[in-house]
């Protein structure tokens, strides 16, 4: 793989003994809609270690964002966590009441939203909105908050932070607004940041700037990041570990080097075939046929089976479990057998 991919690594992830800061186990989320129950997340497991960047990739509608929002109790109308745990600091966030959760979200877990237009209140100056995080969570007084926010904005490369503090969201450019969003997520010095497609709304130069800032600032503080994205390039650039999701199920999980060198799951291979690879610039991009399903009933077999070129009867009958294929590399596919039997499939 290209060199630039390898350099952005932290060494935290190699330290397997480190206790995960956030551990999600067997999470199941359903939405009750007028047209039936949508099975958005069907048993997701993952863990993030301190300082680690975990990338969750997959198509739209594969349950990536819902997984994160359900951990924070921000599912919205009709959404409910059916079972599972999200261990954070020795507490199961899923079990917490809304009031208890209020002391965690935004304070110990920061969130960077994708939707820049709606992420900020258009009626309040941007600086005071960031400062509200500190004030509402009773981390410091309004005066100190004001000072700290300006420091943070400065650190995030917002020029003339003092004047920006008083400006309204619509007076800032997209990149500035995203920086401000990052500032509001990180100003309370959380242990984990959920970044929900943080750079999708930005153009690619600003995107790289913002990502560099985010990696930099998180590395300095040892903040773990869970980033949802569907951009393999962005993921390869920044993440330490990748979780591939489809149909609300984890399909593959691997450290980034492993993931880039030995992608295993047919879905992962499909994603790779559909995205640009600088190693093979002439290769035509091939979409995965079909569309991601809206799961109106719990998937019986592998959720990817209807679109998979390798699917057999067993795929449609039984949900494959995540199995270790190589050290730290786990795949949920019936056609991937065991640790030693691994053989990468050709790109379809």
């Amino acid at each position: 793989m290209a060199d630039f991919v390898v350099e952005a690594r932290t060494d935290f992830s190699n330290d397997v003994s480190k206790q995960p800061v956030l551990e999600v186990r067997d999470l199941v989320v359903r939405f009750e809609r007028a047209d039936g129950v949508v099975h958005a997340v069907n048993g997701v497991d993952f863990a993030v270690r301190p300082g680690e960047w975990l990338g969750i990739i997959g198509e739209s509608g594969s349950g990536k964002s819902v997984t994160l929002m359900s951990i924070l109790g921000l599912l919205g109308e009709g959404g409910r966590v059916i079972r599972g745990n999200a261990w954070f600091n020795g507490v199961d966030l899923v079990q917490l009441s809304d009031r208890q959760l209020r002391t965690v979200r935004g304070k110990d877990i920061g969130v960077v939203f994708q939707n820049l237009a709606e992420g900020f209140n258009p009626y309040l100056p941007i600086g005071s909105q960031i400062a509200e995080v500190l004030v509402n969570h009773r981390l410091c007084t309004r005066r100190t908050a004001h000072r700290r926010v300006i420091e943070f904005m400065h650190e995030l490369g917002i020029a003339d932070a003092k004047a920006r503090f008083q400006q309204y969201p619509h007076e800032l450019s997209g990149g500035m607004r995203q920086r401000a969003m990052i500032a509001s997520a990180i100003v309370s010095e959380p242990k984990v940041i959920f970044a929900d497609e943080p750079t999708t709304a930005l153009d690619s130069t600003v995107q790289m700037q913002v990502l560099a800032l985010l990696t930099d600032i998180c590395r300095k503080r040892g903040t773990a990041v869970v980033m949802v994205t569907h951009d393999l390039g962005v993921a390869a650039h920044t993440c330490d570990r990748i979780v591939v999701m489809y149909g609300g199920v984890v399909m593959e999980e691997a450290p980034i080097d492993e993931f880039l060198q030995f992608p295993t799951h047919p879905y992962t291979l499909g994603l790779r075939a559909a995205s640009f690879d600088p190693e093979q610039p002439d290769r035509p991009l091939r979409p995965i046929p079909g569309v991601a399903p809206v799961l109106l009933e719990a998937p019986r077999g592998c959720p990817f089976a209807p679109r998979c070129h390798m699917a057999t009867t067993v795929c449609r009958e039984r949900l494959p479990a995540l199995r270790q294929t190589r050290p730290e590399h786990r795949v949920a596919c019936h056609h991937v057998q065991g640790e030693n039997e691994h053989e990468p499939y050709p790109i379809p």
Binding site: M69, L72, L74, G76, E77, R102, R105, G106, K107, G110, V111, F113, N115, E118, G119, F120, N121, Y123, L124, Q129, E132, V133, N136, H137, S184
Partner: peptide, 22 residues
């Protein structure tokens, strides 16, 4: 229902705060 209110909740806002400021 929207990102805006989610971000208000994340900012630790109480119901009263969300109602009056957002």
């Amino acid at each position: 229902n929207g990102t805006l209110i989610d971000s208000a909740i994340l900012a630790g806002g109480s119901r009263w705060y969300i109602a009056t400021r957002y």
